[in-house]
Design a protein around this nucleic acid. Structure first.
Lengths: 233, 233
DNA sequence: TACATTAATATGTAGCTACATATTATTGTC
DNA sequence: GACAATAATATGTAGCTACATATTAATGTA
């Protein structure tokens, strides 16, 4: 360690977090300017900035140019959810992956999909219903709508051979993602598609993604009974 | 825009992502060194570094000192899940929040909890069973274990008045979080606690957190029928 | 040839100057 | 007092030098 002790952005982040957690700064409070923190920690403004960016990303504070930094009023537990490509998930379980395109058609977005995307008017979309299988048994059924204005090239993809899920993860990055997760009893249609019993507890994941302001896809994925979504981070 | 056109780390990130998505670089491929990218983009290495950090964070590439940058073999859809403090979630729905401590006791971690934390031996933990209510109706039942070696101060908290959930979000940051989400039919015990019908489809969220290597808490939260976890980002 | 030691390397970071920009505060005008 | 215009401000970023460090490659030794 040199005479000039160099500050760690990590230790500065942790010090600021500690001041928030011990209520030196409470919810809604303005924090000192980066410059002021730099002076009091004896480091560079960019080091404070690096620490603050991390705190903002983890949901503890919010930042605004000129407006300054504020402790968030609504602290949350933030976790990163990694949603795997279904084929890789199945293969990682040691099972054999199968895929069936049930039907696809171009149609205007339904009211539910318009609501998910917050669209004032219907847009032309490709609706894809497909079944993912593990060892020839139904694994996940997905009902997906893809916006043709944002992803016109999806019409050239052979979705009998490759799932839209996989194509989109590989080809269409998103910048925003809404998630709705819940349990519901299986309907007769669910039971037919998933070969389960009506009334079974089914895990449902609805996901809507955008790139910038442009809607990409909105899907409802219904998993077979017993499915668990597991993520580490 | 000045004569010296300044590069945006965002546009560099997007260019690199495009090269990955169009298979210029495939899964497992090594990317050029930051220095090389800087030369070819005509910008600074730190600008490339900033772009790469974002790509790493979003799960597209992985970085190693000396080892370089590699396209990940297992691309994922990554979403940030914001798990709210239950009281705020209830209040945001316009309902009145209620909280009941059912029981708490100090006991050695159970085998299931040891497995969640990957512990070779039992640790002394505080087990807390509690019920969150909305408008006097059961909302979420949580069975939580808190590691007393990591969070000894939890024994001084009056958990009849404040949920462990809320205390921990406010006082005990975590650096790692494992999640397991699933649906299952309600057991007779679930039904009694949640005042639901046995067999109802229940959404279950298991969450285990660490600070560094130290285990913090592991809980199983069982939501009332119809509950939906919604997150935007 | 196997293993230990040392050197090299590519990313990670601290700090600095200078500029960019979204926001907020102040001033001017009616 | 309300609104528009302008100025000020606090964060965000580009690029640079220098140093730190985890890893990989090369060299030395038995």
């Amino acid at each position: 360690m040199t005479d000039k002790q160099r500050h760690s952005w990590v230790s500065i982040r942790d010090s600021i977090r500690e001041m928030i957690l011990n209520s030196t700064y409470g919810p809604g409070d303005k924090l000192p300017r980066d410059e002021e923190f730099a002076a009091s920690f004896g480091c560079a403004r960019s080091t404070v900035h690096r620490a603050m960016r991390d705190l903002a990303q983890s949901g503890l504070v919010e930042r605004r140019r000129k407006g300054g930094t504020m402790v968030r009023r609504d602290p949350v537990t933030r976790a990163t959810l990694n949603i795997p490509i279904t084929r890789l998930e199945v293969e990682q379980k040691g099972s054999t992956y199968g895929y069936q395109l049930i039907r696809q058609s171009v149609q205007p977005s339904s009211p539910a999909i318009m609501a998910n995307f917050d669209l004032p008017e219907a847009r032309p979309m490709l609706r894809v219903e497909a079944l993912h299988l593990a060892d020839s048994r139904p694994y996940i059924f997905e009902d997906r709508w893809i916006c043709l204005e944002t992803v016109p090239e999806i019409t050239s993809v052979d979705l009998t051979r490759e799932s839209a899920n996989e194509w989109l993860v590989r080809n269409r990055p998103y910048s925003r993602c809404d998630l709705r997760l819940y349990a519901r009893p299986g309907t007769p249609i669910d039971s037919e598609v998933l070969q389960s019993t009506p009334g079974d507890a089914l895990f449902v994941m609805e996901r809507t993604t955008w790139i910038g302001e442009a809607p990409i896809t909105s899907l409802c994925a219904v998993a077979h009974p017993g499915y668990q979504l597991f993520t580490q981070g």
